[in-house]
């Protein structure tokens, strides 16, 4: 079947088997290897990307389901050379060690801050509870998200003053 979808603002059209999983389309066909393929059982969250306005675990979504929709991967987070505050937070707070879980963590964190700009530590931990990090532990990841929230609040205030 032929599908057409927009990934990070670029339209792609491909002929696929309907059983192709979205994560494999993104990584193997479109060569956007920022999204990681982890547990394959929708537990670990390494494959999280956005389908339209929503983070999804793309190992459990068919590429066919993305036909006609918009996808955002970690490659689409930065605006040109300017990192998204969430990316900046992960860099500053050492929110990663091996980096395998990082793209999924950042995409879910972006969604959290879009819907909940001032999350408590508990809110951040709850939002990321479907994502697994096996090396840094979660302290620095939570700090990174909180850094981004503070940064964005400060930016907002600067814009309004």
């Amino acid at each position: 079947m032929r599908i057409t979808l927009t990934v990070n603002g670029t339209e792609y059209s491909r002929i696929i088997e309907p059983r192709l999983l979205l994560i494999h389309l993104i990584r193997d066909e479109l060569r956007l290897t920022g999204s990681h393929w982890g547990c394959d059982t929708s537990n670990c969250g390494a494959c999280v990307l956005w389908l339209d306005e929503t983070p999804v675990k793309s190992c459990t979504v068919l590429a066919a389901m993305a036909d006609g929709r918009r996808v955002m991967t970690v490659e689409g987070l930065a605006a040109g050379t300017r990192l998204d505050p969430v990316q900046e937070g992960f860099a500053r707070c050492h929110g990663l060690q091996c980096g395998f879980c990082t793209p999924g963590m950042m995409l879910t964190a972006r969604w959290l801050l879009d819907h909940h700009p001032d999350p408590s530590e508990a809110d951040i931990r709850e939002a990321l509870s479907g994502q697994v990090c096996r090396c840094t532990g979660y302290e620095n990841i939570v700090r990174a998200v909180r850094w981004a929230a503070d940064y964005e609040a400060a930016q907002d205030q600067a814009d309004h003053s």
Binding site: G45, T54, P55, V56, K57, T108, E126, S129, G130, Q131
Partner: peptide
């Protein structure tokens, strides 16, 4: 039920 990302879809 599951986790927040799974619940979104």
């Amino acid at each position: 039920i599951a986790d927040p990302v799974v619940r979104l879809w």
